[in-house]
Design a protein around this nucleic acid. Structure first.
Length: 568
RNA sequence: CGGGGUGUAGCUCAGCCUGGUAGAGCACUGUCUUCGGGAGGCAGGGGCCGGAAGUUCAAAUCUUCUCACCCCGACCA
């Protein structure tokens, strides 16, 4: 491709409303342009990368025996009513009507459609297991689209759905997808980690996420190599600590703490660590408010807490009015002593002694509080997020926390859709069975953003070779003033292309510095400079995007190097 | 949804407070010089100042309404 014919405009200034590097670089390098909130056009350069991702995903899915199909992006409401999600899916669902006022949605996912296909097409266990996939545009009306292509509303996703005779077959199919996904992310050359994930409202089902590791990731991952453990912090369990609390050494005292409403303010006033305090959160329950009690420095885990008996799901914080009604005082001064509502203590509170908590009285806190003496030692539950240093659930190591971008999710759905929508087949015994299902997603466009988050420097993108829009960029120096150089450059361009390389030939009549800067911004891994001075010596200048220095090479050596490295 | 902010040239922004009829840098066109790390000169093209209504002799500027976009929050006890 000739740069002059590629319609590429790079931006020197950073676009004002891009917060994270990948978004900034994608705009500056001309990969994408924004159309509206959470809506992006993939420009020719960016689309090349998308196509690379798609190709790898397709190859590995096909290799794993999955069958590609393409379902409509627009789906009739009736299907969603059948599954019960028309009302449940909420605001994420973009709803619309046609001229007859029939209702539709723009598909955020395709379980309903595929289950409809399955119940029509599949009759016999002999057709199973079967795995259908597609690469489709989805729309989810995110509360707050941001981070460019990473949390867009319209995006491209590979989604696959498998159907089985029984649970054993589902587990096998799931394992096959686990392996296919691992192969995909390895081939994409991205640093990633597989973690256990929340299985949502369908209990017992297995679910794992694939995360590209990056500091800007929206998800926190807890992991421990010694214990071979990795989980989204949403689901990582905490253990009840062994041992007994330390002996009480302080008197119980009620102190004035006017206007102290947060743990931060409390610790600043009392000069104690947050781990010496208790915080009491009031959430909505099935029969009125429920209190959840955590150590001051810990965070509530809404998913775990939502599963407690009597607690409303999804977890909802009680409003101030009902808190006052239930506890007799305002948020900020609530504590466990004398509370009349159901109370759950987190495991980590069990060993606390001489701690601080709210007094259930305006502008007062209690200090020197101890279990056994001032209140009963509680049974404790797991309701907080794990933190770095916590023991692993297996108990053989300690957890580290990393940040990741969720790019893949595999899930044993079970029969929740096939049951509701009547997708069944006859088994070997001639008996009707509802098919257990699996579903498996990969965020195609999100991967592009994630790859940049993981691979860039202050000059621009550094494409992993499997994703790069061009294998190499060919930069002639002052070609427009030397016919000899022009001929040599044109010949070389033809040769490289002939050798099967995807070459970006920067034939623009512009200064070398501009070409270098653009080449680095758009992140092409290999750079070849051809100049008069090198021409005389019969040499070309080669440099890799990750290296700061270049070397002079003979044309044949360059060809060998490049064809070798792209084949490997 | 709540709070905050911003809409002026393709991009980044100034001008607005204190109304007088629109600017800079980058990008773009032509031209000359320059030519191995985002060159310089000269000459150009491009904006009904997000939209509507109002105040005024006069509105990018003041007022009201509206639309769009962005940020923060929705773990706070």
């Amino acid at each position: 491709m000739r740069f002059s014919k590629f319609g590429l405009t790079t931006l020197r200034d950073m676009p004002a409303d891009a917060e994270i590097v990948s978004h900034q670089l994608m705009l500056r390098a001309g990969l994408i342009r924004r159309l509206g909130s959470g809506l992006f056009t993939w420009m020719p350069l960016g689309l090349r990368v998308v196509r690379k991702v798609e190709a790898i995903v397709r190859e590995e899915m096909n290799r794993a025996g999955a069958l590609e199909l393409l379902m409509p992006a627009v789906q009739p409401a009736e299907l969603w009513r059948e599954s019960g999600r028309w009302d449940k899916y909420g605001h994420l669902l973009l709803r619309m009507q046609d001229r007859h006022e029939r209702e539709y949605c723009f598909g955020p996912t395709h379980e309903e459609v595929i289950t409809d296909i399955a119940r029509r097409e599949l009759r016999s266990y002999k057709q199973l297991p079967i795995n259908f996939y597609q690469i489709q545009t989805k729309f989810r009306d995110e509360i707050r689209p941001r981070f460019g292509v990473m949390r867009a509303r319209e995006f491209s996703m590979k989604d696959a759905y498998s159907f089985h005779v029984d649970q054993a077959s589902l587990e096998e199919g799931y394992q096959v997808m686990h392996e296919a996904y691992t192969a995909i992310f390895q081939r994409l050359d991205l640093g990633f980690r597989v973690v256990d994930a929340d299985s949502g409202e369908i209990g017992g089902s297995r679910s794992q996420e694939f995360h590209v590791l990056a500091d800007s990731g929206e998800d926190a991952i807890a992991w421990c190599d010694e214990d071979n453990f990795a989980s989204n912090v949403e689901t990582a369990r905490t253990l009840q600590p062994d041992g007994e609390p330390a002996k009480a050494s302080l008197e119980l005292k009620k102190i004035d703490t006017p206007k102290v409403r947060t743990i931060t303010e409390l610790t600043a006033l009392l000069k104690v660590g947050a781990e010496q305090t208790l915080k009491t959160l009031i959430v909505e329950g099935d029969n009125g408010p429920v209190a959840l009690i955590l150590r001051g420095d810990h965070e509530l885990n809404a998913i775990k807490a939502g599963k407690l008996p009597g607690v409303s799901q999804p977890l909802t914080m009680a409003d101030p009015a009902s808190i006052r009604k239930a506890t007799g005082c305002n948020p900020g001064f609530i504590g466990p002593i004398g509370l009349e509502i159901p109370v759950f203590f987190d495991h980590a509170t069990r060993l606390m002694a001489d701690f601080v908590c709210g007094a259930n009285e305006a502008d007062k806190h209690l200090t020197g509080v101890n279990f056994g003496r001032d209140l009963d030692s509680p049974d404790t539950v797991d309701i907080r997020n794990v933190v770095a240093g916590d023991p692993t659930p297996g108990g053989n190591g300690t957890l580290s926390i990393a940040r990741g971008i969720e790019v893949g999710h595999i899930f044993q759905l079970g029969t929740m859709y096939s049951e509701k929508m009547g997708a069944s087949i006859q088994d070997e015994a001639g008996k009707n069975v509802t098919m257990p299902m699996g579903c498996y997603g990969i965020g195609i466009t999100r991967i592009v953003g994630a790859a940049i988050e993981q691979n860039h420097d202050d000059r621009g993108i550094i494409w992993p070779e499997p994703l790069t829009p061009f294998d190499l960029v060919l930069i002639p120096i002052n070609m427009h003033r030397s016919d000899k150089l022009r001929d040599a450059a044109e010949t070389l361009y033809a040769e490289l292309t002939e050798a099967g390389l995807d070459v970006l030939f920067d034939d623009r009549d512009t200064r070398p510095g501009v070409k270098f800067a653009d080449a680095e911004l758009i992140g092409i891994p290999h750079r070849l400079v051809i100049s008069e001075r090198g021409l005389e010596a019969g040499e070309l200048e080669y440099r890799h995007r990750r290296n700061d220095d270049s070397r002079m090479m003979k044309r044949d050596d360059v060809l060998n190097l490049l064809t070798g490295s792209t084949l490997s």
